Amino acid sequence: MYSNAAYNIYNQNNVNIESPEKLIEMMYEGVLRFNAQAKKAIFDEDNSKKVYWINRAIAVIVELIAVLDKSQGDVAVYLDGLYNYQIQLLSYANIENDTEKIDEVSNVFKGLLAGWRETTDVAH
């Protein structure tokens, strides 16, 4: 589903990680952390922080799209569409200060993270 591109990109940047599987887990966790910060910024009415954290979450999702190995079939194609939809939701959340859209994205990534951990044995 994912090529070793993610691993190679981060290795080139001297980031020590255990495996490509661990990197994907870290990226999912990053989206969740950034969404939580964006949601807090909305509650605090801090527009610049909201934009910053949503943009960070979107950047991680863009990277997840970039490293998808679409030669692996339907799951990769599905994830491509799912990730793009999550970017759309975060963009709307940014424009509309909509924490429910952030929650929707977070719920998707919680499910992806749980499934990823289950299938890769990277769980803690």
Rank of each mutant, 00 (worst) to 15 (best):
L32W: 01
R56I: 01
D69A: 00
D121A: 12
G111R: 03
A41V: 06
K50W: 05
A6I: 09
I54L: 06
Y83I: 09
Y85T: 09
P20I: 00
V108Y: 11
N94T: 09
F34C: 01
D80W: 02
M1T: 14
D69H: 00
E118A: 14
Q86L: 07
K40S: 12
N16G: 11
N13E: 14
I24Y: 01
K49M: 09
L79M: 15
E29R: 09
E96L: 15
D44L: 10
N35F: 00
D74M: 14
Y52R: 15
P20C: 03
Q86H: 05
N14L: 11
Q37S: 12
Q12G: 15
Q37V: 02
Y92K: 14
N14I: 04
S48W: 04
E96N: 13
L113K: 09
L112M: 10
V122E: 04
G81Q: 07
A36D: 11
V108A: 08
N14C: 09
I95K: 14
L23H: 03
I87N: 09
D80P: 03
I95W: 08
L68M: 06
N16W: 08
K110R: 10
I65P: 00
A38W: 05
K70E: 11
Y52K: 15
S48H: 13
A66R: 13
A36F: 06
E18S: 04
I24P: 01
D74H: 10
L68N: 03
A66W: 02
E96A: 13
A59M: 07
E29F: 00
A76Q: 02
N16L: 12
E29P: 01
E21A: 03
I9N: 11
A66K: 13
A114F: 05
Y78R: 12
V105Y: 04
A114W: 05
T99P: 06
R56Q: 15
T120P: 02
S71T: 14
H124V: 15
A38E: 01
D69Y: 02
L79W: 09
D74V: 15
V15T: 04
K39W: 03
M26S: 08
K40T: 14
A76Y: 07
Q86Y: 03
E29Q: 08
N84E: 08
R56S: 11
Y28V: 00
N47W: 11
N14H: 11
G115F: 08
Q86T: 13
L64D: 05
Y2F: 15
K22F: 00
M26A: 04
D74E: 14
G115K: 00
N47E: 13
Q12P: 02
S19Y: 00
D46N: 15
N11D: 14
L79D: 08
V105L: 05
Y7D: 12
M1P: 10
N14Q: 13
V15A: 05
D103L: 04
D46V: 08
